[in-house]
Nucleic acid binder design. Structure first.
Lengths: 208, 208
DNA sequence: TAGATTGTTAATCGATTAACAATC
DNA sequence: TAGATTGTTAATCGATTAACAATC
């Protein structure tokens, strides 16, 4: 960490601590030490203490961390309890599965709209949400002000849709496409989920 | 890099260079400099040269890199042209979308089998491949020797299935579950695709 | 030859780990 | 008090960037 800037790596670890702690709390674990978290996650105890201390002293010397307090603190850092409205663009096989599969509610999101350009899917309902035609995106966004968009569209369509969404007030993206948004949209929050990178990285590892 | 060990970060970048170069080659670009790759990917020219030089001197001083040679070399590093047989376990919404959506062939994989425990999906056909009942996994693996398994099953089922698959000769996993395989399967190649981490990381970034 | 750009070494930067005083 | 474990500083390690000689 350098002047309060927290790396993405730290955040990904916090996310894993949160998961673990929630599971442990659910089975009645009231306190935990960095050593125990280390054993259960594979990170070092030192790293865990550094990660947590970047945000504040959540523990008690000689005792450890109170599970529920720590869950609450990490939840606040990750803004898990804030309400974030999300829309999904591109209701093909992938879009549909993403709509059905992702744990939106548990992470503070609500999926409020689905959009596609194909007339054949508009009007269908996925996860209690009707699929709207993309031509109704403007109207919908002005009325409902979604903060996040999930892109399950072809690579080529990303720039035009993303420009549009940003103008309509969208602040963050989950990007399932091959389009590299970092070049054109340096200042917007983007999380990439890139299957190609995963397949090729695994391919490399298999040869090691 | 330290004694020939290449970090996962380098491999992920090589994967991106490969994509870019393939696109450029397709539109007739014959040569490219690290400076140009840098402009088109957002990495530094220095980093690109370091990455490529970890594997060999693929360029020519004063000239740059021959696009097609570079594609070929990176392709070999990533083993993109080797034939890798993959199976997918768990043909729910996500599994089905993954089977249909991922670019298996372009990255040297072939998806040769789909398995589920639900009788209602066995017998259906996805991507020209029939869905088999999980009870036929052993027989299938002994006959076909898949090298890679894609896990789209509930977290709880991972250890038993993964143990089984490893005994049957599977060497690598694409893990779409929340189960952390690194603890139990330290020596197996695993690529994790973790939607929860992506959602929470984006959530954090939105608050910055 | 002059200009360009690699390959490669050295410098910098950031992230992880180790160590230990503080303190519960 | 003695034992445990945090919070935090210092040391180490690795990855990125800068610089430049080599050379096409």
């Amino acid at each position: 960490m350098k002047n309060g800037v927290i790396s993405s790596q730290v955040i990904k670890r916090l996310s894993k601590y949160y998961r673990l702690l929630s599971d442990l709390s659910a089975v009645g674990v009231k306190k935990i030490s960095s050593k125990t978290i280390a054993e259960k996650t594979g990170f070092t105890a030192s790293q865990i203490r550094q990660d947590l201390n970047a945000f504040g002293g959540f523990g008690q010397q000689g005792y450890g961390y109170n599970t529920d307090i720590l869950i609450c603190e990490i939840g606040q850092i990750l803004r898990i309890n804030t309400h974030k409205k999300a829309i999904l663009i591109g209701v093909g096989n992938l879009g549909r599965a993403v709509a059905l599969h992702l744990e939106f509610e548990a992470s503070g999101y609500s999926l409020i709209g689905l959009f596609d350009k194909k007339e054949s899917v508009t009007g269908t309902v996925v996860r209690n949400t009707p699929v709207r035609h993309i031509s109704r995106l403007d109207e919908f966004c002005r009325e409902n002000r979604p903060e996040v968009a999930i892109l399950c569209i072809p690579k080529e369509e990303v720039p035009i849709i993303a420009d549009h969404l940003i103008r309509l007030g969208v602040k963050g993206f989950i990007n399932f496409t091959q389009y590299d948004m970092s070049l054109r949209y340096g200042s917007v929050a983007v999380e990439n989920i890139n299957f190609w990178d995963s397949l090729t990285t695994l391919s490399y590892k298999l040869g090691e």
